[in-house]
Design a protein around this nucleic acid. Structure first.
Lengths: 287, 287
DNA sequence: ATTATTTGTTTCAAAAACGAAATTAATTTG
DNA sequence: CAAATTAATTTCGTTTTTGAAACAAATAAT
Protein backbone atom coordinates (compact mmCIF):
# COMPACT_ATOMS: atom_id res chain seq x y z
CA UNK A 1 0.00 0.00 0.00
CA UNK A 2 1.14 3.44 -0.93
CA UNK A 3 2.80 5.02 2.05
CA UNK A 4 1.17 8.40 1.89
CA UNK A 5 -2.39 7.49 1.10
CA UNK A 6 -5.00 9.25 3.12
CA UNK A 7 -6.93 7.49 5.80
CA UNK A 8 -10.28 7.90 4.08
CA UNK A 9 -8.98 6.39 0.89
CA UNK A 10 -7.49 3.43 2.65
CA UNK A 11 -10.75 2.86 4.44
CA UNK A 12 -12.80 2.98 1.28
CA UNK A 13 -10.43 0.72 -0.59
CA UNK A 14 -10.63 -1.89 2.07
CA UNK A 15 -14.21 -1.29 3.09
CA UNK A 16 -15.88 -4.13 1.28
CA UNK A 17 -13.59 -6.65 2.86
CA UNK A 18 -13.94 -5.43 6.42
CA UNK A 19 -15.43 -7.55 9.16
CA UNK A 20 -18.21 -6.09 11.19
CA UNK A 21 -16.26 -4.49 13.98
CA UNK A 22 -13.81 -2.79 11.68
CA UNK A 23 -16.64 -1.54 9.59
CA UNK A 24 -18.07 0.13 12.64
CA UNK A 25 -14.80 1.93 13.07
CA UNK A 26 -14.68 2.75 9.39
CA UNK A 27 -18.10 4.37 9.46
CA UNK A 28 -17.20 6.33 12.53
CA UNK A 29 -14.02 7.66 11.00
CA UNK A 30 -15.60 8.50 7.69
CA UNK A 31 -18.34 10.39 9.43
CA UNK A 32 -15.98 12.15 11.80
CA UNK A 33 -12.60 12.50 10.11
CA UNK A 34 -11.30 14.63 12.96
CA UNK A 35 -11.78 11.81 15.41
CA UNK A 36 -8.57 10.08 14.43
CA UNK A 37 -6.48 13.00 15.64
CA UNK A 38 -8.69 14.16 18.46
CA UNK A 39 -9.51 10.89 20.13
CA UNK A 40 -7.38 8.14 21.54
CA UNK A 41 -7.52 4.60 20.25
CA UNK A 42 -9.45 3.59 23.33
CA UNK A 43 -11.97 6.35 22.83
CA UNK A 44 -12.47 5.34 19.24
CA UNK A 45 -13.02 1.80 20.40
CA UNK A 46 -15.63 2.92 22.87
CA UNK A 47 -17.47 5.11 20.38
CA UNK A 48 -17.61 2.36 17.83
CA UNK A 49 -18.48 -0.16 20.53
CA UNK A 50 -15.61 -2.46 19.70
CA UNK A 51 -12.67 -3.55 21.78
CA UNK A 52 -9.35 -1.80 21.87
CA UNK A 53 -7.83 -4.86 20.31
CA UNK A 54 -10.05 -4.45 17.28
CA UNK A 55 -9.04 -0.84 16.95
CA UNK A 56 -5.39 -1.71 16.90
CA UNK A 57 -5.94 -4.45 14.37
CA UNK A 58 -8.01 -2.07 12.26
CA UNK A 59 -5.28 0.47 11.72
CA UNK A 60 -2.70 -2.18 11.19
CA UNK A 61 -4.80 -3.77 8.49
CA UNK A 62 -5.17 -0.45 6.77
CA UNK A 63 -1.44 -0.58 6.30
CA UNK A 64 -0.27 1.62 9.13
CA UNK A 65 2.49 0.56 11.42
CA UNK A 66 0.31 1.37 14.40
CA UNK A 67 -2.50 3.60 15.58
CA UNK A 68 0.00 6.28 16.47
CA UNK A 69 1.42 6.13 12.98
CA UNK A 70 -2.01 6.64 11.48
CA UNK A 71 -2.65 9.53 13.79
CA UNK A 72 0.66 11.10 12.89
CA UNK A 73 0.01 10.69 9.19
CA UNK A 74 -3.43 12.27 9.53
CA UNK A 75 -2.00 15.17 11.46
CA UNK A 76 0.72 15.77 8.93
CA UNK A 77 -1.49 15.55 5.89
CA UNK A 78 -4.09 17.67 7.59
CA UNK A 79 -7.53 16.28 8.03
CA UNK A 80 -9.24 18.95 6.03
CA UNK A 81 -8.30 19.90 2.53
CA UNK A 82 -7.99 23.64 2.17
CA UNK A 83 -10.19 25.59 -0.18
CA UNK A 84 -8.69 26.27 -3.56
CA UNK A 85 -9.35 29.12 -5.91
CA UNK A 86 -9.85 29.27 -9.59
CA UNK A 87 -6.32 29.16 -10.88
CA UNK A 88 -5.35 26.31 -8.66
CA UNK A 89 -8.49 24.50 -9.70
CA UNK A 90 -7.63 24.76 -13.32
CA UNK A 91 -4.27 23.34 -12.53
CA UNK A 92 -5.77 20.53 -10.59
CA UNK A 93 -8.19 19.91 -13.39
CA UNK A 94 -5.30 19.54 -15.73
CA UNK A 95 -3.06 17.39 -13.63
CA UNK A 96 -4.32 15.97 -10.42
CA UNK A 97 -6.56 12.98 -10.22
CA UNK A 98 -9.58 13.33 -7.97
CA UNK A 99 -10.63 10.52 -5.80
CA UNK A 100 -13.86 9.68 -4.12
CA UNK A 101 -12.50 9.51 -0.62
CA UNK A 102 -11.23 13.04 -0.86
CA UNK A 103 -14.56 14.17 -2.14
CA UNK A 104 -16.35 12.38 0.66
CA UNK A 105 -14.21 13.98 3.26
CA UNK A 106 -14.75 17.40 1.87
CA UNK A 107 -18.48 16.90 1.61
CA UNK A 108 -18.86 15.59 5.13
CA UNK A 109 -17.01 18.60 6.34
CA UNK A 110 -19.23 20.95 4.42
CA UNK A 111 -22.27 19.34 5.91
CA UNK A 112 -21.03 19.26 9.44
CA UNK A 113 -19.80 22.82 9.43
CA UNK A 114 -22.82 24.17 7.64
CA UNK A 115 -25.17 22.64 10.11
CA UNK A 116 -23.13 23.11 13.23
CA UNK A 117 -22.57 26.77 12.55
CA UNK A 118 -26.21 27.30 11.87
CA UNK A 119 -27.52 29.76 14.39
CA UNK A 120 -30.66 28.03 15.41
CA UNK A 121 -32.58 31.24 15.95
CA UNK A 122 -31.97 32.18 12.34
CA UNK A 123 -33.33 28.85 11.29
CA UNK A 124 -36.44 29.14 13.39
CA UNK A 125 -36.97 32.70 12.34
CA UNK A 126 -36.73 31.52 8.76
CA UNK A 127 -39.35 28.89 9.43
CA UNK A 128 -41.68 31.40 11.03
CA UNK A 129 -41.26 33.84 8.17
CA UNK A 130 -42.03 31.22 5.57
CA UNK A 131 -44.96 29.93 7.59
CA UNK A 132 -46.63 33.26 8.06
CA UNK A 133 -46.05 34.60 4.60
CA UNK A 134 -48.97 35.27 2.42
CA UNK A 135 -47.20 34.54 -0.84
CA UNK A 136 -43.78 32.99 -1.06
CA UNK A 137 -41.19 34.09 -3.62
CA UNK A 138 -38.35 31.76 -4.42
CA UNK A 139 -35.46 33.45 -6.14
CA UNK A 140 -32.29 32.15 -7.75
CA UNK A 141 -30.34 33.32 -10.76
CA UNK A 142 -27.70 31.51 -12.72
CA UNK A 143 -26.17 28.67 -10.80
CA UNK A 144 -28.64 29.31 -8.04
CA UNK A 145 -31.59 28.64 -10.24
CA UNK A 146 -31.55 24.86 -9.86
CA UNK A 147 -31.38 25.30 -6.12
CA UNK A 148 -34.34 27.62 -6.16
CA UNK A 149 -36.15 25.17 -8.32
CA UNK A 150 -35.41 22.43 -5.92
CA UNK A 151 -36.63 24.43 -2.94
CA UNK A 152 -39.77 25.30 -4.77
CA UNK A 153 -40.48 21.66 -5.45
CA UNK A 154 -40.36 21.00 -1.73
CA UNK A 155 -42.32 24.03 -0.68
CA UNK A 156 -45.14 23.50 -3.12
CA UNK A 157 -45.83 20.23 -1.35
CA UNK A 158 -46.57 21.84 1.95
CA UNK A 159 -48.09 25.19 1.19
CA UNK A 160 -49.72 27.08 -1.68
CA UNK A 161 -48.74 30.32 -3.36
CA UNK A 162 -45.13 29.71 -4.23
CA UNK A 163 -43.71 31.85 -7.02
CA UNK A 164 -40.46 31.43 -8.85
CA UNK A 165 -38.19 34.27 -9.93
CA UNK A 166 -37.00 34.29 -12.62
CA UNK A 167 -39.73 32.52 -14.49
CA UNK A 168 -38.92 31.40 -17.97
CA UNK A 169 -38.99 34.22 -20.42
CA UNK A 170 -40.98 36.67 -18.36
CA UNK A 171 -39.63 40.00 -17.32
CA UNK A 172 -38.81 40.01 -13.65
CA UNK A 173 -40.06 43.45 -12.59
CA UNK A 174 -43.53 42.86 -13.98
CA UNK A 175 -43.89 39.56 -12.16
CA UNK A 176 -42.32 40.92 -9.10
CA UNK A 177 -44.54 43.95 -8.83
CA UNK A 178 -47.17 42.15 -6.85
CA UNK A 179 -44.96 41.50 -3.84
CA UNK A 180 -46.42 42.80 -0.60
CA UNK A 181 -45.29 43.31 3.01
CA UNK A 182 -47.11 40.16 4.03
CA UNK A 183 -44.99 38.09 1.67
CA UNK A 184 -41.71 36.34 2.22
CA UNK A 185 -38.81 35.65 -0.10
CA UNK A 186 -36.45 32.73 -0.13
CA UNK A 187 -33.37 33.91 -2.01
CA UNK A 188 -30.35 31.89 -3.06
CA UNK A 189 -27.07 33.71 -3.31
CA UNK A 190 -24.38 31.07 -3.42
CA UNK A 191 -21.10 31.73 -5.21
CA UNK A 192 -21.74 34.28 -7.91
CA UNK A 193 -24.30 36.80 -6.70
CA UNK A 194 -25.63 38.58 -9.72
CA UNK A 195 -26.82 42.10 -9.96
CA UNK A 196 -30.28 40.78 -10.68
CA UNK A 197 -30.33 39.00 -7.35
CA UNK A 198 -29.21 42.06 -5.49
CA UNK A 199 -31.89 44.08 -7.16
CA UNK A 200 -34.62 41.62 -6.39
CA UNK A 201 -33.62 41.25 -2.76
CA UNK A 202 -33.33 44.97 -2.31
CA UNK A 203 -36.73 45.54 -3.83
CA UNK A 204 -38.25 42.87 -1.66
CA UNK A 205 -36.74 44.53 1.38
CA UNK A 206 -38.09 47.88 0.35
CA UNK A 207 -41.48 46.38 -0.20
CA UNK A 208 -41.38 45.22 3.40
CA UNK A 209 -41.29 41.51 2.69
CA UNK A 210 -39.47 39.10 4.97
CA UNK A 211 -36.35 37.62 3.48
CA UNK A 212 -34.64 34.29 3.99
CA UNK A 213 -31.26 34.48 2.38
CA UNK A 214 -29.24 31.38 1.66
CA UNK A 215 -25.60 32.05 0.95
CA UNK A 216 -22.04 30.93 1.54
CA UNK A 217 -19.40 32.68 3.54
CA UNK A 218 -18.40 35.41 1.18
CA UNK A 219 -21.44 37.60 1.31
CA UNK A 220 -22.94 40.04 3.74
CA UNK A 221 -26.56 40.56 2.87
CA UNK A 222 -28.54 43.54 4.11
CA UNK A 223 -29.04 42.81 7.76
CA UNK A 224 -32.37 43.76 9.15
CA UNK A 225 -34.72 42.20 11.61
CA UNK A 226 -36.69 41.04 8.61
CA UNK A 227 -33.90 38.95 7.20
CA UNK A 228 -32.76 35.51 8.22
CA UNK A 229 -29.45 34.34 6.83
CA UNK A 230 -28.62 30.68 6.33
CA UNK A 231 -24.98 30.11 5.57
CA UNK A 232 -23.63 27.05 3.84
CA UNK A 233 -20.13 25.85 3.37
CA UNK A 234 -19.73 24.93 -0.27
CA UNK A 235 -16.04 24.19 -0.58
CA UNK A 236 -15.42 21.71 -3.37
CA UNK A 237 -12.64 19.19 -3.56
CA UNK A 238 -12.68 19.11 -7.32
CA UNK A 239 -13.49 21.51 -10.05
CA UNK A 240 -16.82 22.63 -8.71
CA UNK A 241 -18.10 24.00 -5.46
CA UNK A 242 -20.65 21.76 -3.90
CA UNK A 243 -24.05 23.07 -2.89
CA UNK A 244 -25.05 19.76 -1.32
CA UNK A 245 -25.06 21.29 2.12
CA UNK A 246 -27.44 23.94 0.88
CA UNK A 247 -29.71 21.21 -0.40
CA UNK A 248 -29.49 19.58 2.96
CA UNK A 249 -30.41 22.75 4.77
CA UNK A 250 -33.39 23.21 2.48
CA UNK A 251 -34.59 19.73 3.27
CA UNK A 252 -34.41 20.54 6.92
CA UNK A 253 -35.98 23.93 6.54
CA UNK A 254 -38.92 22.54 4.63
CA UNK A 255 -39.32 19.66 6.99
CA UNK A 256 -39.39 22.03 9.93
CA UNK A 257 -41.77 24.25 8.06
CA UNK A 258 -44.11 21.37 7.45
CA UNK A 259 -44.05 20.51 11.13
CA UNK A 260 -44.65 24.12 12.00
CA UNK A 261 -47.60 24.38 9.67
CA UNK A 262 -49.05 21.20 11.10
CA UNK A 263 -52.48 20.05 9.97
CA UNK A 264 -52.72 22.14 6.85
CA UNK A 265 -49.52 20.78 5.38
CA UNK A 266 -50.42 17.25 6.37
CA UNK A 267 -53.63 17.59 4.46
CA UNK A 268 -51.82 19.03 1.52
CA UNK A 269 -49.24 16.28 1.47
CA UNK A 270 -51.91 13.63 1.69
CA UNK A 271 -53.86 15.18 -1.09
CA UNK A 272 -50.78 15.30 -3.29
CA UNK A 273 -49.93 11.74 -2.47
CA UNK A 274 -53.46 10.68 -3.35
CA UNK A 275 -53.31 12.38 -6.71
CA UNK A 276 -49.97 10.78 -7.43
CA UNK A 277 -51.07 7.26 -6.73
CA UNK A 278 -54.19 7.99 -8.71
CA UNK A 279 -52.12 8.92 -11.75
CA UNK A 280 -49.56 6.26 -11.46
CA UNK A 281 -51.26 3.01 -12.18
CA UNK A 282 -50.03 1.14 -9.20
CA UNK A 283 -46.50 0.17 -8.31
CA UNK A 284 -44.24 0.30 -11.30
CA UNK A 285 -43.12 -3.21 -12.11
CA UNK A 286 -39.43 -2.42 -12.08
CA UNK A 287 -38.70 -1.90 -15.73
CA UNK B 1 -40.25 -9.01 13.47
CA UNK B 2 -43.41 -7.95 11.74
CA UNK B 3 -44.53 -10.83 9.61
CA UNK B 4 -45.30 -8.88 6.49
CA UNK B 5 -42.36 -6.55 6.37
CA UNK B 6 -40.68 -6.18 3.07
CA UNK B 7 -37.39 -7.73 2.24
CA UNK B 8 -35.63 -4.43 1.69
CA UNK B 9 -36.78 -3.09 5.01
CA UNK B 10 -35.68 -6.19 6.86
CA UNK B 11 -32.31 -6.01 5.19
CA UNK B 12 -31.81 -2.39 6.07
CA UNK B 13 -32.91 -2.88 9.65
CA UNK B 14 -30.47 -5.66 10.16
CA UNK B 15 -27.78 -4.33 7.87
CA UNK B 16 -25.47 -2.83 10.43
CA UNK B 17 -25.32 -6.04 12.38
CA UNK B 18 -24.58 -8.29 9.43
CA UNK B 19 -21.37 -10.23 9.11
CA UNK B 20 -19.44 -9.85 5.92
CA UNK B 21 -20.91 -12.64 3.89
CA UNK B 22 -24.47 -11.71 4.66
CA UNK B 23 -23.70 -8.13 3.83
CA UNK B 24 -22.56 -9.23 0.42
CA UNK B 25 -25.93 -10.82 -0.09
CA UNK B 26 -27.64 -7.76 1.31
CA UNK B 27 -25.87 -5.48 -1.14
CA UNK B 28 -26.75 -7.74 -4.01
CA UNK B 29 -30.41 -7.83 -3.08
CA UNK B 30 -30.62 -4.11 -2.48
CA UNK B 31 -29.15 -3.47 -5.88
CA UNK B 32 -31.24 -6.06 -7.63
CA UNK B 33 -34.51 -6.50 -5.82
CA UNK B 34 -35.79 -8.76 -8.56
CA UNK B 35 -33.08 -11.26 -7.89
CA UNK B 36 -34.85 -12.79 -4.95
CA UNK B 37 -37.71 -13.97 -7.12
CA UNK B 38 -35.79 -14.59 -10.30
CA UNK B 39 -32.81 -16.47 -9.00
CA UNK B 40 -32.43 -19.58 -6.92
CA UNK B 41 -30.72 -19.56 -3.57
CA UNK B 42 -27.70 -21.23 -5.10
CA UNK B 43 -27.47 -18.61 -7.82
CA UNK B 44 -27.67 -15.83 -5.27
CA UNK B 45 -24.90 -17.52 -3.34
CA UNK B 46 -22.76 -17.69 -6.42
CA UNK B 47 -23.35 -14.08 -7.38
CA UNK B 48 -22.52 -12.85 -3.93
CA UNK B 49 -19.60 -15.25 -3.75
CA UNK B 50 -20.76 -16.86 -0.56
CA UNK B 51 -21.73 -20.44 0.17
CA UNK B 52 -25.21 -21.80 -0.12
CA UNK B 53 -25.18 -22.32 3.61
CA UNK B 54 -24.68 -18.62 4.17
CA UNK B 55 -27.57 -17.82 1.91
CA UNK B 56 -29.90 -20.05 3.85
CA UNK B 57 -28.77 -18.59 7.15
CA UNK B 58 -29.18 -15.09 5.75
CA UNK B 59 -32.86 -15.40 5.02
CA UNK B 60 -33.50 -17.19 8.21
CA UNK B 61 -31.87 -14.43 10.18
CA UNK B 62 -33.99 -11.87 8.43
CA UNK B 63 -36.90 -13.59 10.06
CA UNK B 64 -38.13 -15.77 7.24
CA UNK B 65 -38.92 -19.39 7.79
CA UNK B 66 -36.75 -20.29 4.80
CA UNK B 67 -35.50 -18.97 1.49
CA UNK B 68 -38.62 -20.21 -0.20
CA UNK B 69 -40.72 -18.32 2.29
CA UNK B 70 -38.88 -15.11 1.54
CA UNK B 71 -39.28 -15.69 -2.16
CA UNK B 72 -42.95 -16.32 -1.76
CA UNK B 73 -43.40 -13.19 0.33
CA UNK B 74 -41.54 -11.10 -2.21
CA UNK B 75 -43.61 -12.48 -5.01
CA UNK B 76 -46.83 -11.73 -3.20
CA UNK B 77 -45.93 -8.24 -2.12
CA UNK B 78 -44.34 -7.33 -5.41
CA UNK B 79 -40.70 -6.44 -5.48
CA UNK B 80 -40.77 -2.74 -5.94
CA UNK B 81 -40.66 -0.38 -3.02
CA UNK B 82 -43.77 1.18 -1.64
CA UNK B 83 -43.19 4.90 -2.10
CA UNK B 84 -41.82 5.19 1.42
CA UNK B 85 -44.00 4.55 4.41
CA UNK B 86 -46.28 7.42 3.97
CA UNK B 87 -48.35 6.85 7.04
CA UNK B 88 -45.38 6.72 9.33
CA UNK B 89 -44.09 9.96 7.92
CA UNK B 90 -47.35 11.72 8.45
CA UNK B 91 -47.30 10.59 11.99
CA UNK B 92 -43.81 11.88 12.42
CA UNK B 93 -44.81 15.14 10.82
CA UNK B 94 -47.67 15.50 13.22
CA UNK B 95 -45.92 14.63 16.43
CA UNK B 96 -42.21 14.36 16.41
CA UNK B 97 -40.04 17.40 16.72
CA UNK B 98 -37.19 17.54 14.27
CA UNK B 99 -33.84 18.70 15.35
CA UNK B 100 -30.82 19.77 13.43
CA UNK B 101 -28.35 17.38 14.98
CA UNK B 102 -30.55 14.48 14.08
CA UNK B 103 -30.77 15.79 10.56
CA UNK B 104 -27.02 16.19 10.38
CA UNK B 105 -26.43 12.68 11.53
CA UNK B 106 -28.82 11.31 8.99
CA UNK B 107 -27.32 13.36 6.20
CA UNK B 108 -23.77 12.43 6.96
CA UNK B 109 -24.76 8.83 7.04
CA UNK B 110 -26.46 9.12 3.68
CA UNK B 111 -23.37 10.64 2.23
CA UNK B 112 -20.95 8.17 3.68
CA UNK B 113 -23.02 5.15 2.80
CA UNK B 114 -23.75 6.40 -0.68
CA UNK B 115 -20.08 6.73 -1.38
CA UNK B 116 -19.10 3.55 0.40
CA UNK B 117 -21.42 1.59 -1.80
CA UNK B 118 -20.30 3.18 -5.01
CA UNK B 119 -18.84 0.56 -7.23
CA UNK B 120 -15.91 2.50 -8.51
CA UNK B 121 -16.01 0.87 -11.91
CA UNK B 122 -19.55 2.07 -12.38
CA UNK B 123 -18.46 5.59 -11.63
CA UNK B 124 -15.60 5.50 -14.06
CA UNK B 125 -17.73 3.84 -16.70
CA UNK B 126 -20.22 6.65 -16.20
CA UNK B 127 -17.49 9.20 -16.73
CA UNK B 128 -16.30 7.50 -19.89
CA UNK B 129 -19.80 7.28 -21.27
CA UNK B 130 -20.47 10.95 -20.66
CA UNK B 131 -17.09 11.91 -22.05
CA UNK B 132 -17.44 10.05 -25.30
CA UNK B 133 -21.03 10.89 -25.96
CA UNK B 134 -21.86 12.94 -28.96
CA UNK B 135 -24.91 14.58 -27.46
CA UNK B 136 -25.86 14.33 -23.82
CA UNK B 137 -29.45 13.95 -22.64
CA UNK B 138 -30.29 14.83 -19.08
CA UNK B 139 -33.58 13.41 -17.91
CA UNK B 140 -35.63 13.89 -14.78
CA UNK B 141 -39.37 13.99 -14.22
CA UNK B 142 -41.27 15.28 -11.22
CA UNK B 143 -39.17 15.50 -8.13
CA UNK B 144 -36.19 14.51 -10.20
CA UNK B 145 -36.46 17.50 -12.43
CA UNK B 146 -34.57 19.90 -10.18
CA UNK B 147 -31.81 17.35 -9.89
CA UNK B 148 -31.62 17.00 -13.63
CA UNK B 149 -31.59 20.74 -13.92
CA UNK B 150 -28.78 20.95 -11.47
CA UNK B 151 -26.73 18.33 -13.30
CA UNK B 152 -27.27 20.13 -16.53
CA UNK B 153 -25.99 23.35 -15.06
CA UNK B 154 -22.77 21.59 -14.18
CA UNK B 155 -22.39 19.72 -17.41
CA UNK B 156 -22.94 22.70 -19.64
CA UNK B 157 -19.86 24.23 -18.10
CA UNK B 158 -17.58 21.50 -19.28
CA UNK B 159 -18.99 20.27 -22.54
CA UNK B 160 -21.41 21.32 -25.24
CA UNK B 161 -24.55 19.64 -26.54
CA UNK B 162 -26.49 19.02 -23.36
CA UNK B 163 -30.21 18.56 -23.73
CA UNK B 164 -32.87 18.48 -21.08
CA UNK B 165 -35.86 16.18 -21.02
CA UNK B 166 -38.55 17.23 -20.35
CA UNK B 167 -38.18 20.70 -21.72
CA UNK B 168 -40.88 23.14 -20.78
CA UNK B 169 -44.00 22.65 -22.77
CA UNK B 170 -42.53 20.61 -25.56
CA UNK B 171 -43.64 17.11 -26.32
CA UNK B 172 -41.01 14.63 -25.26
CA UNK B 173 -41.09 12.15 -28.16
CA UNK B 174 -40.53 14.87 -30.73
CA UNK B 175 -37.53 16.26 -28.90
CA UNK B 176 -36.30 12.86 -28.13
CA UNK B 177 -36.42 11.54 -31.64
CA UNK B 178 -32.98 12.76 -32.50
CA UNK B 179 -31.21 10.53 -30.03
CA UNK B 180 -28.53 8.39 -31.61
CA UNK B 181 -26.28 5.47 -30.62
CA UNK B 182 -23.40 7.83 -30.14
CA UNK B 183 -25.30 9.74 -27.46
CA UNK B 184 -25.47 9.24 -23.74
CA UNK B 185 -28.25 9.82 -21.26
CA UNK B 186 -28.03 10.85 -17.65
CA UNK B 187 -31.30 9.81 -16.06
CA UNK B 188 -32.55 10.53 -12.56
CA UNK B 189 -34.86 8.00 -11.00
CA UNK B 190 -34.95 8.75 -7.29
CA UNK B 191 -38.04 7.90 -5.25
CA UNK B 192 -41.02 7.96 -7.54
CA UNK B 193 -40.05 6.60 -10.91
CA UNK B 194 -42.67 7.68 -13.35
CA UNK B 195 -43.84 5.90 -16.39
CA UNK B 196 -42.45 8.69 -18.50
CA UNK B 197 -38.99 8.04 -17.12
CA UNK B 198 -39.21 4.36 -17.83
CA UNK B 199 -40.32 5.06 -21.35
CA UNK B 200 -37.55 7.49 -22.03
CA UNK B 201 -34.88 5.24 -20.61
CA UNK B 202 -36.18 2.27 -22.50
CA UNK B 203 -36.26 4.20 -25.74
CA UNK B 204 -32.76 5.46 -25.17
CA UNK B 205 -31.60 1.91 -24.61
CA UNK B 206 -33.30 0.75 -27.76
CA UNK B 207 -31.72 3.57 -29.68
CA UNK B 208 -28.38 2.24 -28.54
CA UNK B 209 -27.44 5.19 -26.36
CA UNK B 210 -25.33 4.76 -23.25
CA UNK B 211 -27.21 5.32 -20.01
CA UNK B 212 -26.09 6.60 -16.65
CA UNK B 213 -28.88 5.96 -14.20
CA UNK B 214 -28.98 7.68 -10.84
CA UNK B 215 -31.33 6.06 -8.38
CA UNK B 216 -31.83 4.94 -4.82
CA UNK B 217 -32.39 1.45 -3.56
CA UNK B 218 -35.29 -0.56 -4.72
CA UNK B 219 -35.09 0.02 -8.41
CA UNK B 220 -33.62 -2.27 -10.94
CA UNK B 221 -32.90 -0.42 -14.13
CA UNK B 222 -32.43 -2.29 -17.37
CA UNK B 223 -29.05 -3.85 -16.92
CA UNK B 224 -26.87 -3.91 -19.96
CA UNK B 225 -23.24 -3.28 -20.58
CA UNK B 226 -24.31 0.13 -21.75
CA UNK B 227 -25.75 1.20 -18.43
CA UNK B 228 -23.96 2.51 -15.37
CA UNK B 229 -25.97 2.72 -12.17
CA UNK B 230 -25.16 5.20 -9.44
CA UNK B 231 -27.03 4.51 -6.24
CA UNK B 232 -27.70 7.05 -3.54
CA UNK B 233 -28.99 6.67 -0.06
CA UNK B 234 -31.74 9.24 0.39
CA UNK B 235 -33.19 8.40 3.79
CA UNK B 236 -34.66 11.49 5.35
CA UNK B 237 -34.91 12.24 9.04
CA UNK B 238 -37.91 14.46 8.60
CA UNK B 239 -40.80 14.68 6.23
CA UNK B 240 -38.80 14.54 3.04
CA UNK B 241 -36.22 12.23 1.61
CA UNK B 242 -32.96 13.98 1.04
CA UNK B 243 -31.28 13.91 -2.35
CA UNK B 244 -28.21 15.72 -1.08
CA UNK B 245 -26.07 12.65 -1.56
CA UNK B 246 -27.22 12.54 -5.17
CA UNK B 247 -26.16 16.14 -5.58
CA UNK B 248 -22.86 15.27 -4.09
CA UNK B 249 -22.33 12.38 -6.45
CA UNK B 250 -23.15 14.63 -9.38
CA UNK B 251 -20.56 17.11 -8.26
CA UNK B 252 -18.01 14.36 -8.16
CA UNK B 253 -19.11 12.89 -11.44
CA UNK B 254 -18.85 16.20 -13.21
CA UNK B 255 -15.57 17.00 -11.62
CA UNK B 256 -14.18 13.68 -12.73
CA UNK B 257 -15.64 14.23 -16.15
CA UNK B 258 -13.93 17.58 -16.45
CA UNK B 259 -10.65 15.99 -15.51
CA UNK B 260 -11.24 13.24 -17.98
CA UNK B 261 -12.00 15.66 -20.78
CA UNK B 262 -8.89 17.65 -19.98
CA UNK B 263 -7.92 20.55 -22.21
CA UNK B 264 -11.22 21.03 -23.93
CA UNK B 265 -13.13 21.46 -20.71
CA UNK B 266 -10.46 23.71 -19.27
CA UNK B 267 -10.85 25.99 -22.23
CA UNK B 268 -14.54 25.93 -21.92
CA UNK B 269 -14.50 26.74 -18.22
CA UNK B 270 -12.09 29.57 -18.78
CA UNK B 271 -14.18 30.97 -21.57
CA UNK B 272 -17.29 30.85 -19.42
CA UNK B 273 -15.46 32.43 -16.56
CA UNK B 274 -14.27 35.19 -18.87
CA UNK B 275 -17.74 35.92 -20.15
CA UNK B 276 -19.07 36.04 -16.64
CA UNK B 277 -16.57 38.53 -15.38
CA UNK B 278 -17.13 40.50 -18.53
CA UNK B 279 -20.83 40.78 -17.82
CA UNK B 280 -20.61 41.27 -14.13
CA UNK B 281 -18.93 44.55 -13.38
CA UNK B 282 -16.19 43.06 -11.29
CA UNK B 283 -16.60 41.47 -7.91
CA UNK B 284 -19.92 42.49 -6.53
CA UNK B 285 -19.36 44.92 -3.71
CA UNK B 286 -21.36 42.99 -1.17
CA UNK B 287 -24.67 44.69 -1.42
C1' DA C 1 -43.35 -45.78 -9.96
C1' DT C 2 -38.34 -45.42 -9.96
C1' DT C 3 -34.42 -43.04 -10.84
C1' DA C 4 -31.87 -38.85 -11.77
C1' DT C 5 -31.37 -34.24 -10.96
C1' DT C 6 -31.75 -30.02 -9.16
C1' DT C 7 -32.50 -27.16 -4.98
C1' DG C 8 -32.47 -26.00 -0.25
C1' DT C 9 -31.06 -27.25 4.55
C1' DT C 10 -28.17 -29.11 8.14
C1' DT C 11 -23.96 -30.72 10.09
C1' DC C 12 -19.42 -30.19 11.21
C1' DA C 13 -14.78 -28.79 11.34
C1' DA C 14 -11.74 -25.03 10.15
C1' DA C 15 -10.94 -20.22 9.98
C1' DA C 16 -11.82 -15.64 11.33
C1' DA C 17 -13.25 -12.25 14.45
C1' DC C 18 -13.46 -10.67 18.86
C1' DG C 19 -12.89 -9.04 23.70
C1' DA C 20 -10.74 -9.61 28.33
C1' DA C 21 -6.82 -9.41 30.40
C1' DA C 22 -1.83 -9.47 30.37
C1' DT C 23 1.99 -7.04 28.60
C1' DT C 24 4.65 -3.50 26.83
C1' DA C 25 5.42 1.38 25.56
C1' DA C 26 4.85 6.11 26.36
C1' DT C 27 3.78 9.92 29.26
C1' DT C 28 3.23 12.26 33.42
C1' DT C 29 4.29 13.12 38.06
C1' DG C 30 6.78 13.02 42.25
C1' DC D 1 15.41 9.40 37.44
C1' DA D 2 11.97 6.33 39.31
C1' DA D 3 7.33 5.50 40.16
C1' DA D 4 2.86 5.96 38.73
C1' DT D 5 -0.34 6.53 35.41
C1' DT D 6 -2.17 6.26 30.95
C1' DA D 7 -2.27 4.40 26.27
C1' DA D 8 -1.53 0.90 22.90
C1' DT D 9 -0.43 -3.78 21.60
C1' DT D 10 -0.30 -8.81 22.15
C1' DT D 11 -1.82 -13.04 23.82
C1' DC D 12 -5.10 -16.29 24.35
C1' DG D 13 -9.43 -18.52 24.87
C1' DT D 14 -14.26 -18.02 23.36
C1' DT D 15 -17.70 -17.07 20.08
C1' DT D 16 -19.12 -16.30 15.47
C1' DT D 17 -18.86 -16.98 10.82
C1' DT D 18 -18.22 -19.81 7.03
C1' DG D 19 -17.83 -23.33 3.28
C1' DA D 20 -17.63 -28.29 2.12
C1' DA D 21 -20.01 -32.04 2.20
C1' DA D 22 -23.76 -34.86 3.81
C1' DC D 23 -28.53 -34.88 3.75
C1' DA D 24 -33.41 -34.08 2.65
C1' DA D 25 -36.97 -32.47 -0.33
C1' DA D 26 -38.81 -31.36 -4.42
C1' DT D 27 -38.88 -31.79 -9.59
C1' DA D 28 -38.06 -33.88 -13.79
C1' DA D 29 -37.06 -37.77 -16.65
C1' DT D 30 -37.31 -42.57 -17.84
Amino acid sequence: MEQSERLAKRILDYYDAMPRGERRLADLLLEQPMAVVEKSAAQLAERATVSKATTTRFFRRLGYQSFKAAQRAAREQGVDPQPVEFGARMHRLAHQQMDLSQHLQSEVQNLVRSIEQQRSDDMSRAVRMLARADKLWVVGFGDNYPLAHFARALLIKIRPDIRMIPIGGFSVPEEFASISPSDAMLAFGLSRRTRALRNVVRSAGQAGAKIVFVTDYGSQPPSSSETAVLRCRTVGSGVFDSPSSAVSLMIYLCSALATHLGESSIDRLKRIEAIHSDWDDGPDGDW
